[in-house]
Write a protein that binds this DNA or RNA. Structure first.
Lengths: 126, 126
DNA sequence: CAAACATATTCTCATATCGGAATGTGTCAA
DNA sequence: TTGACACATTCCGATATGAGAATATGTTTG
């Protein structure tokens, strides 16, 4: 087996820098392919190809407007990415939780000493 | 040019599901390679190879312990991922902003009707 | 209809992946 | 020292990428 297809999920689709740039550009609002090629300084075919990937993963929607196609962001698939990465927020905010976990295990504590359940924020500004 | 190397950055490294699983497993605390192969049901070489990638990107640190090597998560590189994805939070929380933007443009409104600047949260639970 | 314009698709090529199998390196024990 | 154990690296093969160039599809205008 080879590397997973870029169209497998948002994780793979977004791993490509150009695709992130495209999404960033579209974050401001709908844009046509031509606008993107100019903004990113890429060749038109490459832009179309990247857009195809983004579309297959559901990260962008298209709309026909005369002879051009207007693309817009659909951030929904990014939620999964955000959710997964978010779990590590406390790990980079505080090295302590990690140690706490280990200590809890060693101590045989039943209650994992939850750190403010329900709130993703740690309170520490980072 | 081909696809970017998996060791290019956290984005690429984390696009691989197995690597995410490894990080998830390590989130609980240090683990040896053997522990990981058992937990994930993978062959030892594959685990080592994935760990290599994660290490090159700085997502894990290693520590020698006798004849085994203990790996631990270093979430720092994930901050960039989180930061980028986080920019799209409002876009998936409310489809409204997007539409608002379009409406504003059509109406020629000067003030973009900002949605609670300073707060990333939209108030809407989703 | 033909020409111009906007996008999409196809083809080629160099590259890197991931898994599997085999092998290499280093450490502990008898 | 030899053997067992833990892990890392290398070689293989199938696959898919991303850029570039060329071409196809589709829409508007004259």
């Amino acid at each position: 087996m080879a590397r997973a297809a870029t169209t497998t999920d948002a994780f793979n689709a977004v791993a490509e820098p150009r695709r992130r740039e495209i999404l960033d550009a579209l974050a401001g609002g709908e844009l046509a392919v031509g606008d993107l090629t100019e903004l990113l300084g890429l060749a038109q075919p490459q832009v179309s190809k990247h857009l195809r990937v983004l579309r297959e993963v559901g990260l962008v929607d298209v709309r026909d407007d005369g002879r051009r196609r207007l693309y817009r962001v659909n951030a929904a698939p990014l939620r999964a990415v955000h959710a997964w990465v978010g779990q590590y927020e406390r790990l980079w905010n505080e090295r302590f939780d990690l140690i706490d976990g280990v200590l809890d295990e060693l101590a045989g504590t039943d209650e994992p000493r939850s750190t403010e359940p329900g709130s993703t924020e740690t309170g520490r500004g980072d």
